[in-house]
Design a protein around this nucleic acid. Sequence first.
DNA 1: GAGTCAGTTAACAATTAGATAATAATGCAA
DNA 2: TTGCATTATTATCTAATTGTTAACTGACTC
Lengths: 237, 237
Amino acid sequence: MKLTLCKQNVNMEGKAKQILIADDEPDILEIIRYNLEKEGYEVHTAKDGNEAIEKAKQLYPDLIILDIMMPRKNGVEVCQILRTQPSFQDTLIIFLTAMSDESSQIKGLETGADDYISKPISPKVLVSRVNALFRRVTSKEAGKTLQIGNIAIDPVKFLVSVDGNEVILAKKEFELIYLLASKPGRVFLRNEILTQVWGNEVIVGDRTIDVHVRKVRQKLGIDCITTVKGVGYKFEI
Amino acid sequence: MKLTLCKQNVNMEGKAKQILIADDEPDILEIIRYNLEKEGYEVHTAKDGNEAIEKAKQLYPDLIILDIMMPRKNGVEVCQILRTQPSFQDTLIIFLTAMSDESSQIKGLETGADDYISKPISPKVLVSRVNALFRRVTSKEAGKTLQIGNIAIDPVKFLVSVDGNEVILAKKEFELIYLLASKPGRVFLRNEILTQVWGNEVIVGDRTIDVHVRKVRQKLGIDCITTVKGVGYKFEI
DNA sequence: GAGTCAGTTAACAATTAGATAATAATGCAA
DNA sequence: TTGCATTATTATCTAATTGTTAACTGACTC
């Protein structure tokens, strides 16, 4: 028998929301981890800037919390680097700053952070800020029905309609089309699709994506997924 | 089944960034190599000035680290020689200088170096300087849509449009035109094109580039690739 | 006029994705 | 719990595309 804890903070796919924290002080890392895990998030940690970037690219977390002062790339640098990549354009980023350090705060928000939290950290503040951020975004975006041309993709009802005709897709099929359609025209590398839809710890074979693409194409009846040989797939009407 | 490791320091095509180090002291060479390879860079070495020039022309690395004091052409000389060639106009160059030797430092920067690092080398400093240098450059230009006259080259959508008409290119064709168009007017040597598009371990025949150039010219319909006989190709409208 | 170098073309090889069926895993309902 | 139905993954084969080579041609240089 398997006991499942009712987790609050899960994303569309039912997976716990991933948070990556980068700070060079192990104690702070642990305090944050404890409090966020208690809330049902899945927490990963990095102890410097480079490790943060590395892990971000492995995990594609939903939120990244960056200490401003870190060895091997500070928080602002990490943020800048990640933001240059389309994959991290929409990732939430929070900075941890020393209370007094106003210039960092300003710089941080200019760099494209979504919020900042002053040290010393109060767990309560931390948790409520994180929750608030997710609420803000998820209420806007998640569960948002995508409408591209005559295709509507509704993640709430798990439904895709083509010219008003509703098509039922399986979970993976739906996640695949939802990902591609979230940025029409943009090419998603096979690798990228794998981490976004399958998760980074899952290892699946080469043909798995193809088969799912095929099923989606088949069910929808129209050709809205374009193959870019040797590169990946894109959504295009 | 293919497992791909996520490397941090890679360029658009997912290849590791190439660094060439020239120093006559094997120990220093090894220290630097170790620390940079740990960061995910691909490291090549040379033990004097002439070898450095030779390898630079074979590899077209992203960054060259030159010791000032070397037998068979010192670092400054090597830098000067390379800088006379357009192909190395934008290659990053870092000098290694003895702490006290200020005149070399000045000379180095005058000669067109992008940074210098004082000996004795601290691995931390080295790595952060190298990373910083790449950040400066790549954050500016990564994955950017190129727009030259009526031609747009969009690596995110993997599309080339001429007067708004979208043209579909194969992977190698796209990489070729993207490379050439990244510096319009500048001549790329055949050698350079080979290492940048095909990678330096791949050996292909003489006519391969021509054929690809031909296909691009054909598909785009306009003549934007100019042949410079005996030298290479350039992008030009 | 021999030699070099790139353009052209077609043929071949290698790579990559599509199709299909079989198997495994999962979920659901009786 | 069991069995059925759906979904996910893999294996294998096939088709198509893409990449490379070879052989020939033409232009230009010395």
